[in-house]
């Protein structure tokens, strides 16, 4: 049984269908990349899965561990073991990195978690998660929090956005470490090198999953800019 399963999901904003009969499955222990161009609904799908209060399916189901979680709140989903790293993580006044990494009653070695994401613990543990922190630093802190938290399902929305090029390999190693810690990962990206570390990949186009398979195959299809369903006539993918 997949850890996460989405069945016949529709999501409308006004009259516009953002997700259209979407079906998706993520196996326990996998890193599953979700690829698609800007505006195809990747982040919307992430928000629906995590339970953002402004997002709920128009129809269809989201199953986590076999349970329909469609009516569960973000808090209930987090308690069940789901969490998410947003594309632009929130900043906080007066909350230190140490406080933040300790959330969720983490017993992890916080210094080790920071070191793994390339941040010196002595320099960062007592720093505040406020405006003084760059986007890249904040993103690394978020990944360190995933190492500390060890969720069952971790949704990573564009995890290398804002990360300098020479550090991307390190971030990809961290994602693998999160997996080794026992977390399953939904990896949302539009970068082929990032998708390359996944066990499985799916291509999202026009609100549908149009292909699921090995990352090589899915990335190859993604780069062809050719929609398998409508040939780009309806979703605009080929013309993008």
């Amino acid at each position: 049984m997949p850890l996460l399963q989405i069945r016949h999901a529709d999501f409308l904003v006004g009259q516009k269908k953002i997700l259209d009969d979407l079906n998706f499955a993520l196996e326990e222990g996998d890193v599953h990349a979700l690829i698609g161009t800007n505006g195809t609904g990747k982040s919307t799908l992430a928000r629906l899965i995590i339970g953002n209060e402004d997002y709920s399916l128009s129809s269809g189901q989201i199953l986590f561990d076999g349970q329909d979680i469609g009516q569960r709140s973000l808090y209930q989903r987090a308690q069940a073991g789901m969490t998410m790293v947003w594309q632009e993580p929130a900043l906080f006044e007066g909350i230190s990195v140490r406080d933040y990494l300790s959330l969720g009653h983490s017993l992890a070695n916080l210094s080790d978690c920071l070191a793994q994401v390339g941040l010196a613990p002595d320099d960062y543990l007592d720093r505040l998660l406020d405006k003084s922190m760059s986007g890249g630093e904040r993103k690394r802190i978020e990944l360190a929090a995933m190492l500390a938290l060890r969720p069952r399902l971790c949704i990573l929305d564009e995890p290398v956005a804002g990360i300098d090029l020479i550090s991307i390999d390190n971030i990809l190693r961290v994602i693998n470490r999160i997996k080794q810690n026992g977390s399953s990962i939904l990896l949302i990206t539009h970068q082929e090198d990032v998708a390359g570390i996944a066990d499985q990949a799916s291509l999202l186009c026009g609100g549908k999953i149009i292909l699921t398979g090995s990352p090589d195959r899915v990335v190859s299809q993604y780069k062809s800019r050719h929609c398998l369903i409508c040939n780009g006539q309806e979703c605009g993918y080929a013309a993008a």
Binding site: A78, Q79, T83, I95, D99, L103, H105
Partner: peptide, 24 residues
Amino acid sequence: KQMETLIAHGLSPEQATDMIVLGM
């Protein structure tokens, strides 16, 4: 966004509110 982040990290809505307010 701050609330969602803290709740997704395991805090209840009440705990998240307290942490944000006291942090500020």
